[in-house]
Design a protein around this nucleic acid. Sequence first.
RNA 1: GGAGAGGUGGCCGAGUUGGUUUAAGGCGCACGCUUGGAAAGCGUGUGUAGGCUAAUCCCCUACCGAGGGUUCGAAUCCCUCCCUCUCCGCCA
Length: 426
Amino acid sequence: MLDIKWLRENLDEARAGLARRGAGAPAELAGLLERDEKRRLGLKEAETLKNQKKKLSASVGRLKKEGLAAEAEMEEVRQINARIKDLDDLVKSCEGEIEDTLLRVPNLPDKSIPDGKDETQNQEVRSFGQPREFSFEPKSHVELGEGLDILDFKRAAKISGARFAVYKGQGARLLRALINFMIDVQTRENGYEELYPPFLVNEESLTGTGQLPKFAEELFKMRDDPLYLIPTAEVPVTNYHRDEILSEEALPIRYAAYTPCFRREAGSYGRDTRGLIRQHQFDKVELVQFVAPEESWEALEGLVGHAETILKKLELPYRVMVLCTGDLGFSAAKTYDLEVWLPSQGTYREISSCSNFTDFQARRSGIRYKKKEGGKTGFVHTLNGSGLAAGRLFVAVLENYQQEDGSVAVPQALRPYLNGEERIGL
RNA sequence: GGAGAGGUGGCCGAGUUGGUUUAAGGCGCACGCUUGGAAAGCGUGUGUAGGCUAAUCCCCUACCGAGGGUUCGAAUCCCUCCCUCUCCGCCA
């Protein structure tokens, strides 16, 4: 959420920033300052009247104690109350309109990111490793997984429907190994504390991180309770500190959390219909940071590095992309995607997304900190990134480590997590 | 799910026959005095948001779980909801 006080002085800058994201942006702020002006005028008058009312009521008390009549004062307050009610209603409706508007306005893109209309205009920042040369035609993870009987899409469709998978035998073990490996690296080497949060969250939490009110169609909602399945651990973990004031000494706070993630994938019907790439349910280790505002850009670079650690240790070729304005998520000011090489597709595919949300989520969810100097409170900056998406990592391992006979070598770093086994299948 | 108890400032804890409570008091914390140093003692200060403002000074408004209501006036009375605790039931 953008700061209404800041907008009073910087409306043009806000419009320019939103315009960089795409068409229609400037209209989103229309009428906002007028509402705000109306609200403040009403508020000022209401507060003056409330002050009068308090004084009158106190005098009623005094008069009655002395056994004197106070009808005139009481009547005056009744009159004032009618006016206060009108003004309060006005203020409340203005506040509601301002809130409704601001909750639907995305974050402003950082100056450093490239302009562009969609993902085709994201820019490569750096890359790691070389795609492996195959002496045979590399298979897709679907062929490999079904061939090894470690993935079962057919029965998953029977049990649940499209975009679900069953991991079986060594596949299930491999998935668990990847999750444990990632959690261990992030908590032991990169300074994160592990959190295991609820997978069902309420509306306030989803509003805090920005999924609601605008993107309800992406979420699985419970029918009989006001709860939603989390689309990412970002939601419960960021909201862990909702409506709290942290001490500056406590910052930065870093959490790593494994959770499954649930997404309806409405509007992506034709895309990635086969395999694990796009599922309604997938597993992910998420990294979340709460930092002082002046630290957040450096923290973003660190966060990307933490996600990269996993790919480096697993020796998987990848590249780092900075998202252009048109591809930027609603709450983010800047995002780096990590894309891992998939031999069967002959291309790099997203496996992590690391963002600095600046104070956007913190303002929505009331996550503040008390400054050492001066004791003032301010909003923290929040960041998060996948470290990494386990399903897609599973795909990358299968495809990059596949052998001609259809088996899959286990990356060195992962062997301790699989009883030292070196091969899946055969 | 049933029955009961309860939610007050960073913490503890008064206040619940509605009216100088601008939420007592204590603890903690910060600063100062005192001291060779420390403790004790003494003094001062110590919430959040909004409004006003050059201002983190002052002043004003709101906030005693949340939202409504009664009243000239609500932490105190009424209604709805949420959460916590205890017991019972069910369950892993």
